[in-house]
């Protein structure tokens, strides 16, 4: 296998070189075989995760960027004021904030969130919306099973129906 014949070597030296190289080659090959057969006989090293079976125990890291969500309290309150900063920051236009005029009990007319539309199919998970949100309304969810049969299912409305703005955040 080694094609560097050394012209100055005598016959006996060439003979020895031939066999020492052959032996060297075989030894390196055996070393490799030892590694692979070692792994073959140690089933503990198997690292396969059997996905659908381990769904119950499979827990993503807290910061895993699965999708953008808007957290709601138990009273169905969210913190989005509809300012539209996330929409501005999104590089792909995957967020649309639709606002409506609301009248407060004091009779003032203020802007309120009507629909926070999030196109998951366009999202690149850059995290700019979550980072730039002034009222911490957005967060990343850990759900990652986003396969759907129709692309329209990937367009989501993040605020739940009938949800209202969480007032104390706005006050602060």
């Amino acid at each position: 296998m080694i094609n560097h014949p050394n012209k100055e070597l005598g016959g006996w030296q060439l003979f020895r070189k031939y066999f020492s190289e052959l032996w060297f080659g075989i030894r390196t090959l055996l070393k490799g075989l030892r590694i692979t057969s070692g792994y073959f006989f140690s089933p503990k090293e198997i690292i396969t995760e059997q996905y659908p079976e381990n769904r119950a125990t499979l827990k993503m890291f807290d910061r895993f960027k699965g999708e953008v969500i808007m957290s709601h309290t138990a009273e169905n309150r969210h913190r989005c004021t509809g300012c539209g900063i996330c929409e501005m920051n999104c590089p792909n236009g995957s967020i649309q904030v639709i606002t409506r005029k609301e009248t407060t009990p004091e009779g003032k007319s203020v802007r309120g969130l009507d629909k926070h539309i999030y196109h998951l199919g366009m999202c690149t998970f850059c995290g700019l919306c979550v980072k730039s949100c002034p009222s911490d309304a957005l967060a990343f969810g850990q759900k990652f099973e986003h396969a759907v049969f129709n692309r329209h299912h990937l367009t989501k409305v993040l605020n739940q129906p009938g949800s209202l703005l969480q007032k104390e955040i706005k006050a602060s």
């Binding site: 890291f61 910061r63 895993f64 998970f125 850059c126 995290g127 980072k131 990343f140």
Partner: peptide
């Protein structure tokens, strides 16, 4: 993944420092 939320495309280092 634990620190940045992404495995391949992290978008973690940003002008001014880190995302978080």
């Amino acid at each position: 993944e634990e620190s940045c939320g992404g495995r391949l495309l992290q978008s973690f280092i940003c002008p001014g420092g880190l995302m978080h």
